[in-house]
């Protein structure tokens, strides 16, 4: 199986980063490279990441958002396979072995995703949390060439929707993806962190993603009429 590199964008993640990194370094097929991109944290995120050197490299940048941090991290990776993890989420130990095997067995596959299960911060996962599937940053494993073809992860207003936009561009490019029906990652929930109402003004990132998709769809329709 091909070597892989992991990018972890992190912002004020001191409480959770060590556990996230341990879940990466403890993989049954360990990573060739791990890059933490500290996006201008005001806590000791960078110090915690540096404690995992030399297996983990730490990049620091002024606060620009998760998209730029993800892209910056990818630029540091030389391995042919990429994976991402959010600094507060965890991988299950066999995650990468399963997904690397799928990519190995399916040469035409651009990206393979998996399901996530929620767990409460401070309470070990007991396997009963809500599961969520779909294309999600901590779940996807992809070929480096695909990332380069799709282009950088763009930061959007309100720091929302950056990966939705990137995955939408991936699909628009005709790349083949597969979602495994297996939980291979865990999503951390802190009690009280869920917002039950919509945050006025903060969902503008999703609206921007929708506008970009709208323009793509209109262009495709025009090209179809002309073609």
């Amino acid at each position: 199986m091909q070597p892989y590199g992991v990018v972890i964008p992190a912002y004020n993640a001191a409480r959770t980063l060590a556990e996230a990194l341990e879940s990466v370094l403890g993989q049954s097929v360990p990573p060739a490279e791990v890059v933490v991109v500290d996006d201008g944290s005001s806590d000791n995120t960078a110090t915690i990441a540096a404690g995992f050197a030399p297996r983990v490299r730490v990049l620091r940048q002024s606060n620009t958002g998760p998209g730029a941090a993800t892209t910056r991290g990818v630029q540091e990776i030389t391995s042919p396979i990429l994976a991402f993890l959010d600094a507060d989420d965890l991988w299950l130990p066999g995650k990468m072995q399963v997904q690397l095997q799928v990519l190995h067995d399916n040469p035409d596959l651009a990206l393979v995703s998996c399901r996530m299960r929620q767990f409460r911060h401070g309470v070990p996962d007991d396997g009963t949390g809500e599961e969520r599937g779909g294309l999600l940053r901590p779940c996807v494993v992809l070929r480096r060439a695909v990332f380069d073809a799709v282009g950088p992860v763009l930061d959007l207003p309100g720091n929302r929707g950056d990966m939705v936009d990137w995955f939408a561009r991936l699909r628009a490019g005709g790349h083949r993806t597969m979602e495994l029906d297996e939980v291979l990652a865990l999503r951390r929930i802190l009690p009280g962190s869920l917002s039950h109402g919509r945050a006025a003004g903060r969902d503008i990132g999703y609206l921007k993603v929708a506008h970009l998709a709208l323009l793509r769809n209109r262009r495709a329709a025009t090209d179809g009429e002309q073609g």
């Binding site: 969520r132 779909g134 294309l135 999600l136 929302r160 929707g161 999503r187 993603v209």
Partner: peptide
């Protein structure tokens, strides 16, 4: 599916 699945959109 991407927007509905995105975990960020329901989190503070």
């Amino acid at each position: 599916d991407l927007i509905v699945a995105d975990p960020i959109h329901d989190v503070d």
